[in-house]
Structures are given as C-alpha cells and as structure tokens.
Nucleic acid binder design. Structure first.
Length: 562
RNA sequence: GUCUCAGUAGCUCAGCAGGAUAGAGCAUACGCCUUCUAAGCGUACGGUCGGGGGUUCGAAUCCCUCCUGGGACGCCA
C-alpha cells in the first residue's frame, strides 16, 4: 500500500488545475511531530495562486477531501493539511508483510541482477592494516550488501597495493638494514620499521630515492631477485590481512592487486598513443585535462608506470571481464582528483561505460586532528583495536551473562560490531577523529546497543514460546505505533542508502528502531496479556527480523543472546 | 596560491531535493531491577546552527563574502 501516492491522488483531484502529480509528490512531507499526523501537505505555495492565506486554503482543502478507509482523518493546522493513517490497517499491513517476507523484507529489484564491481579495502602490502583501511573495508562491504539487497550482483574486488615505487624502497631498505629472521618472526611490524627507517634516512640522503626507483624498475622488468623478495613480502602480508577479514567476516571475489595489471600496461599506453592523447612533458608521458584539472601522469621518464596507469588498465580489464553496469571505488577523499583524472582519460578514450564509474570517497581517520602517516610510523593498528574490543566484550559477558554458551563467538560478534558500527554510523565523508574510548563504547548509540536490543527481542520470543503462524492477524496497539512507522520505513531507507552510497542511513535507522522498541519494552509487558500475546510477539518478531537484517547490511552479526 | 570538504549543546554527531516547537548519544545530577537480559528506560541541565550580507511568505538547509580547520594539487599510492 502506497499511502503517499494515494494522498497525492486525493490532492490532485482537488488541485489538478494548478499542480501536477510530480510536483505534488515532491511537496508531500512527513511531519516532524507525531501529533501532526503521518503525511503532510504545505499550502504556502498556493497562497499566491488562490490569493488566500495558506491557513484558509488548508482548511478548505481539508474540508473537501474524501478519505478512503485506510486514512483515518485529516486536519488543517497552520497552513498544512495533515493526514493521519488508520493505525489498525497500517499496523496490520506492515506486520503481515514482514511476517511473509522475513529477511527479504525491504528487498528492491531495481538492479535486475546487473553487475556492480566494488573496489574496496585494498590495503598496501608490507604495511600494517591501519584504521584508515578499516573505513574502506567496512564501507565497501556494507555497500556490497546494500547493492545485493537492491537487486544487483556484486563483484568484490580487493585491489591490493602490491606494486609501485614503495616496493623499491622496501627492497632497498631490506638489503641495507633488514634481517631475515626478524622479518620471519614479525613480518608486518619489521617491514614497517624498515619502511619508516627508509624515509628517515632518505631525508638526509637523496640518493636512496634514486636507488628505490631503480629497484622498482628492476621489479617491472622482471628481475628475479627483486621479485622473490616482493613475493615473500606479499605472502606474509596476506596472511595477516586474512586474519582480519576473517574476524570481520568479509570475503572477496578477487584479490587482483596492482601487480596483476603489470602485463596489461603496455596496451594502455599503446591505446593512448593511438588515440593521440599522450603528450611528452619533461621526459614523462602525460594526458592533458580540460577544465583546469592538472594533467594525468601516465609514465615516468624512466619508463616505469604510475598508479594512474594501473588504474586505467584495471578499469578496462574489469569492464572486459565483468561487463559491469556500475563500478564503485571506495577510496579515501584525498584521491578525488586522481579518480577525476582517470575517469576523464577513459572518457577521452571513447569508452561510453565511463558513466558507470563512481568514486565513493570517505573522510579520513585523524589522529590529533592530523592525517596518520605510514611513512612516519604514526599508525594505529586495526588488529590491536579489534582484539581490545573483543576482550572488552568478553569482560562484559562475564559480568552480565556468565552462563552464556558461546562466549567467544558472541564476544567476537559484539567487539567487531562495536568497531564497525562506530565507523558506519557517521556520514561517510566526515573525518573521524580516532578515539579508542569512543570505539570501545557499548552504551548509547552503538553497535552493541542494537545487538542488545536484538538479543532482548530474541529472548522474549523464546520465553514466550512464539510460534509463527501463517494466518494473517489483525494488529493494533497504540503504544506500538512508533515501532510500526519505523518498520514501515525500512524499504525507503535501503533505497536511499543505495542511491547515496551511504551505509550510515541504515545505521541511524537501526538505532531509531532500537530506541522505539526499547521504549515499548519498558512500558508494555509483552508476555502478560494472554489475549494480545500472539499479536505482540509477532511485532517483536518483526523487530527482530528487521534489526537483524539491518545489522547484516552493515556487516554486523546479531547474536540471539549476549 | 588554486581546487575541494567541513564548522550545529562541554564532547561526538543527526537534521541540509527550504517549511510547523533545531534533535540524539556521551558527560553531569537525580529516579527506575522480588516482574520479559539495567549493554536498558525516564527526568533535569545544556544552542547568537562560525561571522556578515542576499534570495524567499519562510533559511541550520540555497547563493555571495569573510574567518577558522582538514585534505589534494607531475614523475608516491
């Protein structure tokens, strides 16, 4: 049932000479306060047309309107026509819809099974998995889930940072100061030390940078010794990364990183040359941009490639391989210019599909108001944060629910839930000041709060011996109305989250639903009234389903007990 | 310098296809467990929506300008 559409039609029958359907639809609002009804039509714009006060227009409109039975009544208040739904019909409709569709509630078929590739996480080999990468990882993962819910088929791509001059630096550093045994014992930390030392030393000694570039040249030319070291670094790193992905419950379809495109770069350069797009500038090869954009560097003067070259090759390869409808890049804000350039070059190459490419940027994780720098060793390790969160969750369980069966697993779900939710609840583009304290908070607007609400609902269903029934039921409980309106909104929230590539919409929603439910829980004894028990348990079940599904879309699990 | 993002309660943030009384959480103070998980609920306290102009019947929301802070800006990724 589409209440808004119905309301629009009712209004249209009165106002067809002055406003069209589309315009009317855009004007409809949801009132701010509950006592103002469920849908609202502001009459201010009509004042000029009718040469009457908005108040007067609202009153006259409200009088003329004839309501179908799923609307309860209409009111004119200070220039608005407010309409109230018939709560019983509305409640019954949503409850039955959710009971029927279960976890498929809110599914949208817009995508038509077309393919979206999502490039996310993409950590750099031989560097620790930092808090910064967490953002790309959890946002990308959630977008993947939201896209699937919206009817798309998703290819999850982990575009590993496993190529580039940084490996020249690392190899140089390892040859100068590295000890094999130490690296074997503690690969990531030891490699990071070498990387940091390199930058410290390079400040004094410019020559080191030349050596590094030379070393990367050797890599690109296939030098065996260099490749062997590179391979070793890569394997050790992947082991570490996989531990984290396992903790977070995240999977990828492809780990094709930058190195994968090494043999596909020549063609890109050739293509650019054929189309006459390549220019020489100070010995380097570039593509010029219009609109004041700085040129895109394709090849350095020593003949080695750049980040941009690899991303071009990757985009073309992905389109050839997957025939994607859309392609998302979940990469930090600071790379906006880079993606503008890449997309422009692809357009210049004549690829119509460049329209499907979207950079999904996000704000930075800041430390003391500044960007964290790997080069200076100023990073916070995700692994440490996660294990702290999990330990804290474990302490909470010991204190609050010591007889819980699967303590370890629940602690993992709650600890990671806290960290993931903390990241996703804020608007994507905001910078986040790193605060361990905030991240490890389990009360208030947090992941564990939502998980707890879900566990509470599950617990009631168990205690109440709830059994699903396929019979349609009539539901009406005045106190449950705030929950009903939230449940009703879920599909729209998913739609918006997808359209705006914004998981925080879902995080906020799931918080609101939790708040509404907890309030209800505090005021209504669900199991005591035998006559209403089945109906109320059905409501609880709907909340449980929706919370679980909402959390799932964020990449967070919902334990039944905690 | 150019481009770009942001500035809302002590702190962290919502609200920003203009609308009715600017909302949460944290922190602080108080109240609620012999009763469905207190990781909860409630009450109180807390705001020149960075400043100034403009558009509009109406601006936290749109436009201009200034201030403050982040970030990006050819051989890193």
């Amino acid at each position: 049932m589409d209440y808004k559409k119905d309301f629009v039609e009712i209004l249209f029958s009165q106002l067809q000479d002055n406003l069209d359907v589309q315009k009317l639809e855009n004007m409809i609002e949801i009132p701010k306060f509950e006592n103002q009804g469920d849908l609202s039509f502001p009459c201010f714009e009509l004042a000029k047309i009718f040469k009457k006060s908005p108040q007067q227009i609202a009153i006259e409109l409200a009088k003329k309107i004839k309501l179908p039975k799923h609307f309860q009544h209409v009111e004119a208040v200070s220039g608005y026509v407010n309409i109230f739904l018939n709560k019983q019909i509305a409640s019954t409709t949503v409850i039955n819809e959710i009971l029927t569709k279960k976890e498929y509630y809110g599914e949208i078929k817009n995508g038509n099974k077309k393919i979206i590739t999502i490039d996310f996480s993409s950590p750099n080999i031989a560097k620790p998995f930092s808090m910064g990468h967490l953002r790309s990882t959890v946002i990308g993962n959630s977008l993947a889930l939201i896209s699937e819910k919206s009817g798309y088929q998703v290819v999850r791509i982990n575009h590993l940072g496993d190529w580039g001059t940084q490996f020249g630096k690392l190899i140089v550093a390892y040859k100068l100061w590295g000890e094999k045994q130490k690296v074997i014992e503690n690969p990531i930390k030891e490699l990071l030390k070498l990387y940091v030392k390199f930058h410290e030393e390079a400040e004094q000694d410019e020559q080191l940078n030349d050596q590094a570039r030379h070393c990367f040249k050797m890599l690109e030319d296939g030098n065996e010794g260099a490749l062997e070291l590179w391979n070793w670094f890569k394997e050790e790193s992947l082991k570490e990364f996989n531990k984290i992905y396992q903790l977070l419950g995240i999977n990828f379809d492809s780990f094709n990183g930058e190195a994968f495109y090494n043999d596909k770069m020549v063609q890109v350069v050739q293509l650019l040359e054929e189309k006459n797009l390549l220019k020489e500038s100070d010995g380097a090869k570039i593509v010029e941009m219009e609109g004041g954009l700085p040129p895109c560097l394709i090849m350095k003067k020593d003949g080695t490639t750049l980040y941009a070259t690899r991303d071009l090759a990757a985009a073309i390869y992905r389109h050839d391989t997957y025939q994607f409808e859309k392609s998302f890049y979940v990469v930090g804000n600071e790379q906006s210019l880079h993606f503008k350039q890449i997309f422009t070059v692809l357009k210049k190459l004549g690829y119509e599909w460049h329209h499907g490419l979207t950079h999904v940027p996000f704000g930075m994780m800041l430390k003391d108001g500044k960007k964290m720098s790997t080069r200076k060793g100023k990073v916070v390790l995700l692994e440490e944060v996660l294990s702290e969160a999990i330990n804290l969750a474990k302490e909470n369980i010991e204190e609050k629910n010591p007889q819980l069966a699967a303590k370890e697993e629940v602690a993992r779900q709650v600890g990671t839930g806290a960290v993931i939710f903390h990241d996703l609840k804020n608007y994507r583009l905001n910078d986040i000041e790193f605060s361990l304290e905030d991240m490890l908070r389990f009360e208030g607007e947090t992941g564990p709060y939502v998980q707890y609400t879900h566990a509470r609902a599950s617990s009631i269903l168990r205690k109440g011996g709830y059994e699903e029934s396929l019979d349609l039921l009539t539901f009406y409980d005045e106190e449950a109305w705030p929950i009903i309106t939230k449940l009703k909104a879920f599909p729209d929230v998913i739609k918006r989250a997808f359209e705006e590539s914004d998981p925080s919409q879902i995080a906020k929603y799931v918080l609101e639903l939790s708040k509404a439910f907890n309030k209800y829980y505090g005021n209504v004894r669900i199991l005591d009234d035998l006559e209403q028990k089945q109906a109320r348990l059905s409501l609880v079940y709907c909340v449980q389903i929706t919370l679980k599904e909402g959390l799932r879309l964020l990449g967070i699990q919902a334990p039944e007990e905690m």
